[in-house]
Nucleic acid binder design. Sequence first.
DNA 1: GGCCATGTATAACGCCGTTATGCCACGATG
DNA 2: CATCGTGGCATAACGGCGTTATACATGGCC
Lengths: 199, 199
Amino acid sequence: MSPRTPEPEVRQRLIEAAARLLADQGPSGLSTRKLAAEVGASTMAVYTHFGGLPELVRAVVREGFTRLADHLRAVPETDDPLLDLAALGEAYRANALDNPHLYAVMFGTASLGGYRLHDDELDEGRYTFDMLVAATRRTIDAGIFRPGDPEAIAGQLWSAVHGYVMLELAGYLAADREPDAVEKVLNPMLTGIITALVA
Amino acid sequence: MSPRTPEPEVRQRLIEAAARLLADQGPSGLSTRKLAAEVGASTMAVYTHFGGLPELVRAVVREGFTRLADHLRAVPETDDPLLDLAALGEAYRANALDNPHLYAVMFGTASLGGYRLHDDELDEGRYTFDMLVAATRRTIDAGIFRPGDPEAIAGQLWSAVHGYVMLELAGYLAADREPDAVEKVLNPMLTGIITALVA
DNA sequence: GGCCATGTATAACGCCGTTATGCCACGATG
DNA sequence: CATCGTGGCATAACGGCGTTATACATGGCC
């Protein structure tokens, strides 16, 4: 078949094709045969490069967290850490709504192959989480938040936004049902959490 | 094969077997053939009674919400609505931790068959949500919460607890990583949200 | 009796993940 | 240059899957 196309890094092309299939058709649309057709190779490519489909999905999860981290990194760091925190939350939500299937796989991977996240993936997610911890720490150092454990505070913010986004993705807070859920639910919840933390 | 065993309601036995398989082996362990073997019938039973596996899963989701509602109903209603709210949250979390796979399917169903929840399932979930709304309304009527939209307030509490539980199930707040995450993350978050609501 | 509707079992189709096998290209070695 | 070993690949097969077509059995109704 002479696939002497550029062929740059079959590994990366497989990860990107998998993320694309996941985003377009959801987890059920991901198969070694479709992947092989997408990248112009045989199904064996998945096994030589990753060992199997679950490992490929894990790589996609890492990719998803990397994209999320890129989105969060794009949020400018101003002199008002509290506004930065709000912007981080908004960027987090936007990323999830832009890649709903990928986001679902990142946090519900147990539903796909029946496996659990390994420490690597958890660490990948926690690295992203660290950006939120850093922003929280800046807010404390600026004297806006009372002194406290930045990780615990960031965990609260993460839980709140993540839970809201999950409900939104599941359809419980969809725009056609709750038109202004952001103003009525998300924002008051976050201001409630935050005002309890300010000095 | 003379399946003249009691055979009470093949429909219900299929739902229960599916919930059991889901709880034991996760979504990947759920198959028409295993179900048929479990209930002593052929795979056709799934199609005559439900139309297909996705519809059966939807029935299981409804069953999961019913169980959750039962758990929440078991929480006694005291004369302190705020304590009742806290007890509801604890019961919610306990139910999710007891049936992690089922809980994941209830909220991440997109990951299983690639389908979305229909209005029926959403309504089922919202009925459960209504119990939280009622408890919130009682808290307002008792003069503990300032007057406000009970649904919006309940949505905040739901988002917060749901997000925390999801992170916990995914392993980000697992006991071995964050030993006292409940005290450091969940409880402060909820008290923050709640103190912002008290009169 | 005959007739229909309903639920079932059987068997097949196509797709899936995974694996065994053989091939081929290529760098190292002499 | 010739040889060899090795890593990545295509091919083909195996078993399991969801789904469907089909034929059979059973029970109510005329």
